[in-house]
Design a protein around this nucleic acid. Sequence first.
DNA 1: CAGTTAGTTCGGAACAAAACGAACTGTAAA
DNA 2: TTTACAGTTCGTTTTGTTCCGAACTAACTG
Lengths: 161, 161
Amino acid sequence: MGLCSEHKKKLIEELGLYFEKRHNLPPLAARIYAIMVLSSIEGFSFEQLMEITQASKSSVSTNLNLLLQLKYLEYYTRPGERKRYFRSSGSFLQNMLRERYETVNSDLELTQKIIDFNQENNPENYSKKGYIGNIFHAFLEQEKLNIEQTLQRIRDFKEQS
Amino acid sequence: MGLCSEHKKKLIEELGLYFEKRHNLPPLAARIYAIMVLSSIEGFSFEQLMEITQASKSSVSTNLNLLLQLKYLEYYTRPGERKRYFRSSGSFLQNMLRERYETVNSDLELTQKIIDFNQENNPENYSKKGYIGNIFHAFLEQEKLNIEQTLQRIRDFKEQS
DNA sequence: CAGTTAGTTCGGAACAAAACGAACTGTAAA
DNA sequence: TTTACAGTTCGTTTTGTTCCGAACTAACTG
């Protein structure tokens, strides 16, 4: 008795690879997270996750705990049951934005260091590199703004609902 | 006889770690790329790279070829010499933009798939996930625009110079 | 042609990351 | 107090990555 349609299984694999890269998660964690993102807020039990992923108890345990610690997942219990049910916490979109925000900031920092260094040490190609550096800097600032506005929009939406 | 100042060596390590993460490069490739980004368009020979990185011939060869294949580097020759001189191809800023552009596009695609899937299969929480999905979608479109404008600005600059 | 230069390719060693099974812990019901 | 359940921990195995040395190739040089 399959817990997932074929289509869903395919999407899980695809999304899994994607999360592996984008969030630097171990393969099993990425797949579990993909499952959650594609499922209802009911979530799944530990056992169900073992079945869907075909992984061992210990692997599922380790990777679930990782995802909980990173706050990608949360769990709840049902009255009268000891089991925990896992689901994605908040929206994966917010996690993505948060991460993008961090990369933009470190990109800004690094870029500035590179520009400064080249300006000082490789002046012969600074006129070129330097100016493009400024364009890029403007790009990153614009991106930062976009992220901030988006986060604000999400907050607004959450409040009014 | 050091080919790099202490300060440069430090920056190379820092940038190297950064490229390792951001571009998913093996450590040595990331360091070589960092060297190029911080150097003049003169570039370096194979030998010099061996000396700076303190790595073996085979490792330098493998990783240089990887970087060439990914178009992070290019090489040129000097009249009467058989050696090749390696330098960063185009500007690293453009490479970064190119890469960002690709991630935005694949993010857009994936996000759309997730939204579609949830709309179809998990309608009970679509209102929530779906709406935020739209916000995120708008975010990505804005980002795409920003990248496109920036690339245009770079092209304009190159033409006029 | 023999030797040098400039690199490439291949097999393996060293290490790191991921997954596993078996034994363990804590709680609750019988 | 035993058994069942729900999961955790730990040592091992499997898998994958990175780098290296040694042998090789291809192009030029005397």
